[in-house]
Amino acid sequence: MLLKTSWLVAFSVALLFLFTGCFEIVEEVTIHENGSGKATITLNISQSKTRLASIMLMDSINGYNVPTEAEIRRHIKELAQKIKETKGVSKVSTVINFDDYIFSLSCHFATVEALNKVLSSISSKKDAAMMAKKKPFSFDKNRKIFSRNYHYNIASEFKKIKRDDREILDGASVTTIYRFDKPVLFTKNKDSKVSKSKKAVFLKVSAEDLVKGRKNIKNQIQLGK
């Protein structure tokens, strides 16, 4: 009987607050002089905890199917497995935290080209085709230039969300942090910040700015010799 009660409560909570909450995406990449490095991508949906906890108690909501914890775990494990199979990639690890709703994937790579392969291996065919044209990451060892391109159009991805549900984007953001062995001379994206030590570049863009095309996460970073 108590089980049923908690279900009811969850249901009413979910109904009332279906449209609140937000998320953070953090991309952190370290690149050494020889082109190898480490990459981590984190999805933090902790702010929407109440909403998610309620939704997770249901099968489907608003026409979207709700995956179970086990399904999400399995999916992340599958992704990690896929990444492990990519040449030039090692030490793949995952963090799955259902208490705070924080999920992350990280790996070491021999070259940024391997990292690009990781991205295209876990993307749709169409996105992978785009990536073949425009490399998400590139690092010119001789000229000491690191560049970040869109690997797929986040804005159009967000636009696919039903109009009514777009509010989940309120307060959502994408953060990129890139670290280097050598100090940074300059960065092309005017919204990015260089750290005190000059060896890290930080950029935080809100989902709203991304969707409306006011800002983007593309960047080109020139390192000192």
């Binding site: 933090n44 902790s46 905890k49 924080i102 942090i177 750290s195 005190k196 030590s197 060896k199």
Partner: peptide, 15 residues
């Protein structure tokens, strides 16, 4: 009031 986790960054952008 509900609690949630977020990040703060130092001078070197360590979270």
């Amino acid at each position: 009031e509900v609690k949630y986790m977020s990040y703060e960054y130092d001078d070197d952008f360590n979270a």
